[in-house]
């Protein structure tokens, strides 16, 4: 894995099917193909803070947006979000939560941790593709954020 490439999206997703469908949706709609997949929360933090298997990664390269699933092995999405927000170098990176289900308590906690978006992944594929395209376009092409 060439981990020194600059990427647009860090996708934190343990379900490879979901990951594939997201990747396809983004690529097919020409949003981006510069996406890096990590499969759990711990790996996400390793990537961001260049630790363990990512110790060789160029520190100054950060994703423009993080797509974060909530239900993850080892460390759940909210814990990852908390780490990101509490670290000086990562605290401003936009984080979008992509989850299978809407729980009131999750939304509230995510917003307490200054999440940027909270998105429920639709079961219907057409709606799913549309949602991913919208989210990707918005954060990578419409939105501005501090450098």
């Amino acid at each position: 894995m060439n981990c020194n490439e600059t990427i647009d999206i860090l996708l934190v997703e343990d379900n490879p099917n979901d990951a594939e469908l997201i990747f396809r949706a983004l690529k097919k709609n020409n949003v981006t193909d510069k996406l890096h997949l990590v499969e759990d929360g711990a790996e996400a933090l390793d990537y961001l803070f260049c630790k363990n298997s990512y110790s060789q990664r160029e520190r100054s390269n950060f994703p423009r947006v993080i797509f974060l699933d909530l239900k993850l092995p080892k460390m759940n999405g909210l814990e990852v979000l908390n780490e990101i927000r509490n670290n000086e170098i990562t605290k401003l990176i936009p984080v979008v939560i992509l989850t299978s289900s809407m729980e009131d308590s999750d939304i509230k906690e995510a917003y307490d941790l200054r999440v940027n978006s909270f998105i429920v992944k639709p079961v219907d594929f057409l709606q799913f593709v549309e949602t991913i395209r919208n989210v990707g376009t918005y954060w990578l092409q419409v939105n501005h954020y501090p450098l």
Binding site: N15, K71, S101, V123, D124, F128
Partner: peptide
Amino acid sequence: SYSVSHDLRAPLRAINGYSKL
């Protein structure tokens, strides 16, 4: 119920998505 809502949906999304593909 948290698991149900997350874990039962993902396979449905896969079935729906892949059959669409």
